[in-house]
């Protein structure tokens, strides 16, 4: 990989607070697949996650209670974030589709999963005004920044002596 990617905690936090709906390209109906794990977790945290999976869509299937869609084109607006759960090579086509549909769907962020990186796609998306995150998992980042990752014994890198007020209703919103 070219250079190390660095995203500030403030940038990631801002995205995860602002985004309500995520189109997850490559979401799997198989509960043991990483995409299904991530989708379930993000749903629990109050995100709406719309699966994009042509095969599941052709079969008329739902994934974790959400109807599968064949393409980004078919995702109902508004959707703020496109989460690319596909191989790095596939990210360019998906990103170009996201750029094309940007105004219509409300896309604001293209997020490529842990292990997925496509610098060409990122450059095009950023030139089009989209925010790009690569090689990160929104589930892990959410867990890390909202204090849950440490429950599993992981280093979150987060240090703070502030005591935030509890959320209204206990959700993510804010």
């Amino acid at each position: 990989m070219a250079t190390d990617l660095h995203y500030s905690d403030a940038l990631i936090t801002g995205i995860l607070r602002r985004v309500r709906t995520i189109a997850m390209v490559g979401a799997s109906p198989n509960w043991k697949r990483p995409s299904n794990f991530a989708m379930k977790y993000l749903q629990e945290k109050g995100f709406r996650v719309i699966p994009v999976n042509p095969r599941a869509a052709a079969a008329g299937a739902s994934i974790l209670g959400e109807k599968a869609r064949a393409s980004l084109e078919e995702v109902p607006a508004p959707v703020e974030m496109v989460d690319v759960f596909r191989a790095s090579e596939a990210a360019l086509g998906i990103t170009r589709e996201a750029i094309r549909l940007r105004a219509e769907k409300g896309f604001d962020v293209v997020w490529m999963q842990l292990g997925v990186r496509n610098d060409e796609a990122a450059a095009e998306a950023e030139a089009a005004g989209l925010t790009v995150i690569m090689n990160r998992c929104p589930k892990i980042e959410y867990g890390r920044l909202w204090g849950e990752l440490g429950w599993g014994g992981f280093d979150s890198g987060v240090i703070s002596s502030r005591w935030p007020r509890p959320a209204k209703g206990g959700g993510r919103s804010g």
Binding site: D9, A10, L145, P164, P166
Partner: peptide
């Protein structure tokens, strides 16, 4: 402020 996780 209530919901901003720590970021440093």
């Amino acid at each position: 402020e209530t919901q901003t996780p720590a970021s440093g």
